[in-house]
Design a protein around this nucleic acid. Structure first.
Lengths: 216, 216
DNA sequence: CGGTCATGTGACCGATCAGTCATATGACCA
DNA sequence: TGGTCATATGACTGATCGGTCACATGACCG
């Protein structure tokens, strides 16, 4: 946790530091990210940084938690309709996930790096990773109970599928946008509300549904 | 490319250097991997290293190419039956891929890191990445022609699915083995030839087949 | 023997890093 | 005014890095 000094900072200064730190950690993994670059870019003294944070890891953990918290808030602000079946719920989750990645690209990119480029304290990864894995497993268990998921599907493997596809989907859509966008608006938000984007997300869910849904 | 000096080395010395370098690059990404650690572990002088390789990147590219080459050789030694339909071919590819990862864990881990932990010359990633993407797209086009893949499936999205699942499957099975293996043999090779492993690979392909196969 | 040439060596260079600390600033209060 | 206290500062430390270079070694040849 950052020190009290950090939270006593004027909001704009605090936010500038966060923003610049996210820039650094979305471009480099934990080891390669540089506190020296961050303080230089933020225009603060090295010593000041260490008035705010205990060390590099303190900042990193804080940003990581911030990402999780912001995503939670984002999802809470756009709640799913109650009583959705599992694949409608997954559609909602994927769509909101992609929207979040577009509205908070630095935060998302840094979270993605944190989870996928290894090299930090084991619990860091594994606690977050197992949490999402458990979440998907629970979802699958429910789906089986409600008869929406083929009971013969290996729950662990299905969780792997969801986890993998969901964590990569945003990156994929971003790459695809960049490739398609031959000098177009460059307005990601707009694109990701477009019919085309919805269609890709929809087809993703349909593949999963056909692949794992209950034979009827 | 390494210098001639490197290839003039006695085979055991050359292989020890490669092995130790793979150890380093399978644990750290390009930026964080350390030539100093490699030469210390290999028991050679820093200056000697630079008699063999132009620089860090030279070694990295060489190992990366070696990984691709070894995998190619591995697949060539266990060729698929001719005239397989696309999903049988994918099963073969997944099974051999997992077997390769188990027989050459350092090489595979280093290749995985190279592709997934970003931060090196763009062509490095993107040329390898687009190559495999094109490979899968071609496979999908063939599958559509032969009536094995639903023609309504977005080929690009399907390639993303294959690419993503295939690149993560080995890692997943490794994690799952480690979790299941509560003090068992620790013999990965044996496990990955087991009926259980084959069943997981089989179900993976079945999910993809049900998800994208032609409706009949 | 002396000369040549590929190979081996490790001290050294300049850069960069995370983190520290003595000191400075400046707001607030007595 | 003078004292106190949270905050700001940047020179500094010790470590590590990738890469260089002047020199050592030793095999082969005349």
């Amino acid at each position: 946790m950052p020190k009290e000094t950090f939270f006593n900072l004027p909001e704009d200064k605090r936010e500038r530091i966060i923003d610049i730190a996210l820039d650094e950690f979305s471009h480099f993994d934990f080891q390669s990210a540089s506190i020296s670059r961050i303080v230089a870019a933020a225009g603060i003294a090295k010593g000041s940084f260490y008035q705010y944070f205990a060390d590099k890891e303190d900042l990193y953990r804080y940003l990581f938690e911030l990402a999780g918290q912001k995503k939670g808030e984002f999802l809470a602000q756009n709640p799913p309709e109650p009583e959705m079946d599992i694949f409608s719920y997954l559609y909602w989750l994927a769509e909101k996930g992609v929207e979040f990645e577009m509205s908070e690209p630095k935060l998302s990119q840094m979270g993605y790096r944190a989870l996928n480029s290894g090299g930090m304290p084991p619990e860091f990864l594994s606690s977050a990773r197992t949490m999402t894995a458990e979440f998907f497993k629970q979802l699958i268990a429910n789906g089986k109970e409600q008869g929406h998921i083929d009971p013969d599907i290996d729950a662990d493997l299905a969780a792997f599928f969801f986890n993998t596809i969901f964590s990569e989907l945003g990156q994929y859509m971003f790459r695809r946008l960049a490739a398609d966008d031959h000098g177009r608006t460059g307005n990601n938000e707009a694109f990701f509300r477009s019919a085309e984007a919805r269609a890709i997300v929809g087809q993703t869910i349909n593949i999963l549904k056909s692949g794992m849904g209950k034979r009827s």
